[in-house]
């Protein structure tokens, strides 16, 4: 059985047919060609699939597609404007916060959620905001540095 769900993805209204219990992560990747959210653990523990849902960071593997009717979703793809990276994407690249790259889109979205609600966070707030994201290359200091850079701009 499939249902039709319509929501706003990166600023544009989309409609998709999917099994109602399918995860938002799988729908984004398999049905909408949005591949920045990564299937790491698919149990809400690694943060690689983090997206913004109505402005809040959520792990898209734990969101059912049935739960996003008329909601607003942002992914990394949506942050690129006219071919220009978002300041946080640019800062992570410049600071070397992206090593193998698998976790990077999730970190970008967690950082974005923080900076949207708190443009000048403390180091403690920065660390807390990305504590749900795992980087097995260990680029954490560079990621924190990148977020600080944007916060100080």
């Amino acid at each position: 059985m499939e249902i039709e769900v319509s929501f706003v993805l990166n600023g544009k209204r989309v409609t998709v047919k999917a099994p109602p219990a399918k995860s938002l992560l799988r729908v984004l990747r398999e049905d909408l060609d949005i591949t920045s959210p990564k299937p790491g653990c698919e149990a809400g523990e690694c943060g690689a699939c983090t997206v913004l849902l109505d402005g809040k960071a959520v792990t898209s593997c734990l969101v059912m597609i049935s739960q996003v009717q008329d909601r607003e979703i942002w992914t990394d793809e949506g942050l690129v404007k006219d071919g220009q990276l978002d300041p946080i994407q640019k800062a992570i690249a410049e600071e070397g916060g992206s090593q193998c790259g698998y976790c990077t889109p999730g970190f970008v979205m967690s950082a974005k959620a923080l900076l949207n609600s708190n443009p000048h966070p403390t180091e403690k707030e920065i660390v807390e905001s990305i504590s749900g994201n795992i980087c097995r290359c260990g680029a954490y200091p560079r990621l924190v540095q990148a977020i600080k850079k944007v916060a100080n701009e």
């Binding site: 959520v58 792990t59 969101v63 749900g132």
Partner: peptide
């Protein structure tokens, strides 16, 4: 509880 992403849901 979990981390920010889990607390948000």
């Amino acid at each position: 509880v979990g981390a920010v992403q889990i607390q948000n849901r």
